[in-house]
Write a protein that binds this DNA or RNA. Structure first.
Lengths: 157, 157
DNA sequence: TACGCTTAGTTAGCCAGCTAAGTAACTGGA
DNA sequence: TCCAGTTACTTAGCTGGCTAACTAAGCGTA
């Protein structure tokens, strides 16, 4: 029995997410917001002044990725950095006024897409989908842990 | 009612797919294969000698993206390009022997992950998930079409 | 106090995606 | 025949993700 890559569920899911990202980009590009930035903007909107380390962990992204992204967004005027007075290593990130305006638009766009995606789903369906995603997440994390333990066990080879 | 971005289904799905991609990378990096390359390798394994334009369309990627990716993979010895004798504009892409070996490993890794992801799913659940993904895909494509029509309608503003 | 360790962030260099503009080959009609 | 248009691909320059190596600040203990 051959493995049908093109029809694998993970492959299809990736394609759907790509479409989602593309649509989001269509909706927000006029606000100087690029497609990787909404996760950062949404977190700062909820909780301004987070430090980069916590932002990175929350976004599942490396700190180095944020350094570069925030540099660009500072240049385009969406956010500002401010050193923490109690710990000079820490830089806290805030939305500017322009950033807040843009984030409200981003939020609306995300909400619109979420609505359009699931308006034809029943409550049972969305609940089941959420449940499936949680299980996938759990299993993929378990696999990662398993694999890295196996690798470190093999390290002396 | 506030929009709960972090718990939005599309947000969670993106996170799950990122984990999947990361796990795949763990499994295949020892074969000189980088995480964007499996889709290309799998297609060439099925059908060697495809032209870049068709590969790009099949992978939902821009031709320019493939040009650069294939350059790198030629250097690392996974694929070769060969000009089409009937049309000198066309370059046809083939797996090398090293590429075939790597692709068999990639295929196994993809298959392993797919199995691990869905081994706790019933047949009904995977069927429903597939059905949901198809609907999401349809709705997102419809949105994109709608939006670009609206935009081109507004073009004279 | 001073030395070493830890921690937060940055820099450099890579891969992967995009758009826009450019090149070279093919095609078709005047 | 020749020129214009189309087509396949490439190049340049951007965003965004990664790792590895570096800097600078804080902390702790001898």
């Amino acid at each position: 029995m051959e493995f049908d890559y093109v029809n694998a569920l993970t492959h299809i899911t990736g394609h759907v997410m790509k479409l989602h990202r593309h649509n989001l980009d269509l909706l927000i590009q006029k606000y100087d917001v690029y497609p990787g930035q909404p996760p950062l903007l949404m977190r700062l909107y909820r909780h301004g002044g987070m430090m980069q380390k916590d932002l990175a962990r929350s976004m599942n992204v490396q700190p180095a990725t944020l350094t570069v992204m925030i540099n660009r967004m500072e240049k385009s005027g969406l956010v500002t950095r401010q050193a923490d007075p109690n710990d000079q290593r820490v830089s806290r990130v805030y939305l500017t006024e322009k950033g807040k305006v843009a984030t409200r638009a981003v939020k609306e766009a995300l909400q619109l897409l979420e609505t359009r995606c699931f308006e034809n789903f029943t409550d049972e369906e969305t609940a089941l989908l959420r449940n499936m995603l949680t299980r996938l997440h759990t299993d993929l994390e378990a696999f990662q842990l398993e694999y890295s333990e196996k690798r470190s066990g093999d390290a002396q080879e």
